[in-house]
Amino acid sequence: MIIWSIAKTTVGDALRKKVLQIFLVVAIGLIIISLSFSQTLSFSSRAGSSTDIMLVKSFGLGLMAVAAWLISLVMGVSLIPQEIERRTIYTILAKPVKRYEFIVGKYLGAVLTLAINVAIMGVVFIAVCVFKAMGAEQPVTPEETGLPLVGMQQVGLFDWNMVWGVIMIFLQFTVLTSVVLLFSVFLTPTVNFFMGLGVYIVGVMAPLTETLSSKESQLHPVLKVFYRVIHIIVPNFDKFNVTNTLLHPETHIESMAKYTGIVTLYALFYSLLLMLLAVIIFRKKEV
């Protein structure tokens, strides 16, 4: 109950942060604006409006990722320092509140805030996709053959892959939030922001660190070990980056549900691990 009330307060506090509201509003605005994107430069046997829809989807997913990325970073870095600055942490910890309850409550609040933000964007995004797909029925004509018209190709309205995409974004930035939360226990917001940024970029480039540390790599063994360590420690954000596969499902995802399940577990375990470390550090932390 204590954890829950701290979480709730954190959510209320974060949702009222102007910066985060701006990120959210701008992202939603851009997603809606993307409705008007159309690609007239299209000369293919595919239906032109489908290309427009794909454009909307790739823009939407990307924008949501950027917004969620900024939200989790900006929210995460101030999570603990702000409590200290406002001295609320003192009044809370002077009450019979265990330190782990405080950290877990804060973390839960941050994840909930992220979930609310991503959900709002996700609903708008999927609505925009459906809207764009509505009435997008294209006659399919083989070009210039003079062959008889074939008919109309129906464009599907609802794309489950986009739901997976939104979930992946949430999972990805849940992990980033945990990273930043762990750092926020002992780093100042500015340093933390850049640390979080760095960890994210390294984590996204997991394939690179993987390649650099692989057996085939030409690097010095010491460097290889270094990259291997980096690869193992830094959360593999690349795991959540399935946008391309979702946009172009012809690459045959055997089971997106299975993959999402495993990646969810990965995000969960990793976040728990980071949260636990934050708890361990915070127990000994002087505030």
């Binding site: 055997e254 993959y259 990646v263 990965y266 375990f269 990793y270 691990l273 470390l277």
Partner: peptide, 27 residues
């Protein structure tokens, strides 16, 4: 618990890796 979670993280990586590579190889 930290050690347990590290093992859990490693396990999910291990399971997810082949699927991911298969997807991304094409991407």
């Amino acid at each position: 618990l930290v050690v347990v979670l590290i093992v859990a993280v490693a396990w999910t990586q291990y399971v997810a890796d082949p699927i991911q590579y298969k997807m991304q190889e094409k991407a």
